[in-house]
Amino acid sequence: MSASEGLPTEIALPLQDSELGRRRWPVPAWLTTLVVFLILWQAASELAGLNAAGINMVPSLPDLAGATKLLGNYWPGGFGLQRTAAGEALTWKAAILAFIYNSGLTILRTEIGLLSGVVAGVVLAAAVSWSPFLRRTLTFPAHIARMLPLLALVPLFNLWLGDTEPAVLLFVGIVGFCVMFAATLAALGAVPLYYVQFAQSLGLGRLRLYLTVILPAAQPRINVGVQLAHGFAWSAVIAAEFLGMQFGLGRIVLMAREFNQFNLLALAGFITVGWATASSALLTRFLKLMTRWI
């Protein structure tokens, strides 16, 4: 049985738009926003004009459509297709495969790095909040780490670990960790004392109190931290791919800039924003599920 089944009439549910006499816009709001955005983008393209090389300063929508085939240059080879650098012709098949491959790579790097950073940040913040010894020893260095200009550290990670997957994952993880450590500490510190006292008066020991009261009570605020860290992780992964990696959406952005391919640059940006938005929507849905009691 769902929680809402059989609830009596004394529980007031919010009035629906139709009950308030409001007419709903027939098109989904996100679609309306997207269409308005594309119209504004095209208008900006017309207004910005051409640069000295005769290329649209702001790529028009047809420019963007034309750039999709260029993605084929970023297919590493396989499925019967060689790299274009090895003499293979630019095809739509290669473009589609490159879109899937580079997107998947960037998404995996983001989410794996983020997950490890979130877990590390929450666990360490919980440990610091739990133990006075850890609080004394770790809080100060952790806050120093939080104040570091993280994106500026990408070259350092590149020097330490080279152009490797662990370098990207570690960098994204550290970005996620720094956000989550601060957010979790703040969330744990904001748990109302009366929850703790009530649980103590029910006879809860310290560990159970922590796991079954303090952490769940802090969860809504921790979730805000996860959403923030997710946004930062996307910036971090693109920055990391800029410098070190041979494939990924960040690499496409870098190379498009190198070759003055404004249209591909913008397309890669749109793809990145699209995936970041989609993964953020999924994350929000998951976090809502985790706090369905709110």
């Binding site: 109302p192 009366y194 929850y195 006292q197 009530f198 103590q200 008066s201 029910l202 006879g203 009261v213 769940p216 009570a217 969860q219 706090t291 009691w293 709110i294």
Partner: peptide
């Protein structure tokens, strides 16, 4: 604090989760 002395507060202490 202990389970032998239960407390009902003025505030809403029912655990929402």
């Amino acid at each position: 604090p202990g389970a032998e002395r239960g407390v009902v507060f003025q505030r809403d202490t029912v655990f929402p989760w």
